[in-house]
Design a protein around this nucleic acid. Structure first.
Lengths: 153, 153
DNA sequence: TATTGTTATACTCTATAACTATA
DNA sequence: TATAGTTATAGAGTATAACAATA
């Protein structure tokens, strides 16, 4: 039962399609209900989850260019959700920190995010299969990040 | 064993990171070895796999906008990999077809594509786990496409 | 009228690189 | 010199919409 692997290439295309469509579904809901984009939710989650987060930490974690990261932070700052604090140990960089309003918006959006993702995953795939899928994705992610030099502190 | 699900939201973020990094790895290799981008490989695979493929079929399958699809096809045509044929049954649309050169490039790239994807998946995850992951992704994809009205003929 | 596709605008991302400031 | 970050360019994606041609 299920021992035949149709081909890793086919798996990756299914993964790409799921990512695109699930991203669009979650993004539309966050934008409609909480006024922020999923990309901003992602950035803010990283900032909130890391002490003394710098722009280059976002670059490595999310795998975007430094130019895009810098401008994305500009937009978060313009929205009043984030500010840059001087890094006392290194004058070249700033520490990123969510504002109280940023934390409030993020917390509110997290409920909708979890609910929407669960709707398209937990509802259609058995819990144990989903757990095994999560394990597999975490393993593949770790292999890629290990090789590409991402995510490390 | 593995019954606890850390949260579907965490699974989705792992999926997003895998998609980004694996896309970048495969894209870099296809570009270096075969001169085409992974996005073009994706478009051409859809065109090759469907009789009488139209621009709107690409829009629904890949989930891009009609403007982006039209311009992407322009670039495939400019590269000599695709052409538009008159649709005898509907003067508003064209049928997309790969040129012999397009088919040749696509076939050559497919080897590198499969090898690169397998390197990051089959090498690090047991075959049966990977098969179960493939099943889960296919199921989630079908649920999303059923709701978003994609992929159908 | 509705549909198919092209084209245009404005915004966000990509890669690349010039540039400033600091280590 | 190397690193952290900002800023600029060109190309490709996004949404949105105007538009032409056809159903």
């Amino acid at each position: 039962m299920g021992v035949f692997v149709a081909g890793a290439g086919h798996l990756f295309m299914d993964l790409v399609r799921v990512e695109t469509r699930l991203w669009n579904a979650v993004d539309a809901r966050l934008q409609a209900e909480h006024g922020l984009r999923l990309g901003q939710f992602d950035l803010m989650t990283v900032i909130a989850g890391r002490d003394d987060c710098r722009v280059l930490d976002l670059v490595r974690e999310i795998a975007i260019t430094v130019g895009a990261a810098s401008k994305s932070v500009d937009r978060l700052v313009a929205a009043g959700w984030c500010h840059r604090l001087a890094n006392p140990a290194d004058g070249r960089s700033s520490f990123l920190e969510l504002t109280p309003e940023g934390n409030r918006v993020l917390a509110g959006a997290r409920h909708a995010y979890e609910e929407e993702v669960a709707w398209w995953t937990s509802r259609v795939v058995p819990r144990e299969t989903l757990a095994q899928t999560a394990d597999a994705l975490r393993t593949i992610r770790a292999a890629l990040e290990d090789a590409q030099g991402a995510g490390g502190d």
